[in-house]
């Protein structure tokens, strides 16, 4: 488990290690992979902006609740950004080796997390759970 993790992280940093695997795929797929990476990064940035907005604009909420929601969104952004680079590397590797692309359950968890955050904010505002 730790060995696999370390191997994955080493792959992020080493273009030679990546290039030594399999054969160079059609560059159009590599560019598509790059755009997917950027789309995940934008999702992370949207979560950062959401966290900052909650912290700045929902001043009517109790501070622990407000900071809690902001932290939840910012930690989501951290996970998204790390996942972006990891998924980019895994997809690039799978394409070079001619294997199936990696599957992940992160989109499902991201949807659940965003729903929970939206519900908490909605309930807090709706119940007048404020100072």
């Amino acid at each position: 488990m730790i060995g696999r993790l370390a191997g994955g992280v080493r792959l992020w940093f080493s273009p030679r290690r990546m290039a030594s695997q399999g054969t160079t795929p059609d560059y159009r797929y590599s560019l598509a992979n790059e755009r997917t990476f950027l789309a995940w990064l934008r999702t992370a940035l949207a979560l950062v902006a959401g966290g900052l907005a909650v912290e700045q604009f929902l001043t009517g909420l109790d501070r622990p609740l407000r900071v809690g929601i902001a932290l939840f969104l910012l930690l989501g952004a951290v996970v998204c950004a790390l996942r972006a680079v990891n998924h980019w590397a895994r997809c690039e590797l799978a394409m070079r080796r001619g294997e199936d692309l990696p599957v992940t359950r992160l989109p499902a968890w991201l949807a659940v997390g965003t729903t929970v955050a939206a519900l908490v904010v909605g309930v807090a505002i709706g119940l007048g759970w404020s100072r």
């Binding site: 273009p15 560019l31 790059e34 950062v48 902001a70 932290l71 910012l74 952004a77 951290v78 950004a81």
Partner: peptide, 25 residues
Amino acid sequence: PARPPGPAEVLGATGTVLAVCAVWL
């Protein structure tokens, strides 16, 4: 053919987003 992005771009882009998160955390 276009060259694929180097890890410098990909990691740097991730790193800057993480840095923003870190500042606010």
